[in-house]
Write a protein that binds this DNA or RNA. Sequence first.
DNA 1: ACAAGGAGTTACAAAAAGGTGACTGCCGAC
DNA 2: GTCGGCAGTCACCTTTTTGTAACTCCTTGT
Lengths: 107, 107
Amino acid sequence: MTADPKMYDCPALIAIKAISGKWKTRVLWLLRDGPHHFGELRAALPGVSAKVLSEQLGQLKDDAIISSREEMRDGVLYVLYAYSDYGRGLIPVLDQLGAWGQAHQNR
Amino acid sequence: MTADPKMYDCPALIAIKAISGKWKTRVLWLLRDGPHHFGELRAALPGVSAKVLSEQLGQLKDDAIISSREEMRDGVLYVLYAYSDYGRGLIPVLDQLGAWGQAHQNR
DNA sequence: ACAAGGAGTTACAAAAAGGTGACTGCCGAC
DNA sequence: GTCGGCAGTCACCTTTTTGTAACTCCTTGT
């Protein structure tokens, strides 16, 4: 990835690769108003499978955009996902992307 | 697409769908400094096939981000691709995406 | 011991995206 | 009329991404 010369010509592609995926932007959208655990995300995203959600959360974690912490509640384990400080830097970008997307939708 | 309720929750996804594709951002990058014809784009993007380039140019045209016009030069037909006025509105978004991508790359 | 709730994982299947090589259509020069 | 340069298209195949269903692990309460 870093060794790919074609990538150099287009830094935007690096950003896109980090946030594209059928559910990633939606997850990132949901996490704006605070941490959510796996089951909440799953319930909020009708149609997502545990497998794919887990994969995409893993990729967002690998990119350090989100982080997770475990929490015991009532003897049951919850894994909470939230933006990392680094990941929060992505929010303005997502906002601008969203603004353009919305305008594009009803053009 | 417009009828998909899940889309509503995440306008950023609409934008991403419009610009994601292995070559779209790179094409958009090249078109910043003026129109280019098919063969030029192809030569500037080592590894792209005529089929896929043609497909992606078609999608960018369908989204009205770029436009094309034909031109005769030396008895040979060239098809020039360039940003549309509407598409130029995407440039600041790509810039911000690129800035984040670059920072992300060497984090 | 076992049930219940949460968080995944695994093997497999389907769908979408991208790639290949050969082919077509157009136009003007020879 | 045939050749060369440009802009694609077509049928087919490979790779990547997403989806499905069944299953595991962990912890506390009964």
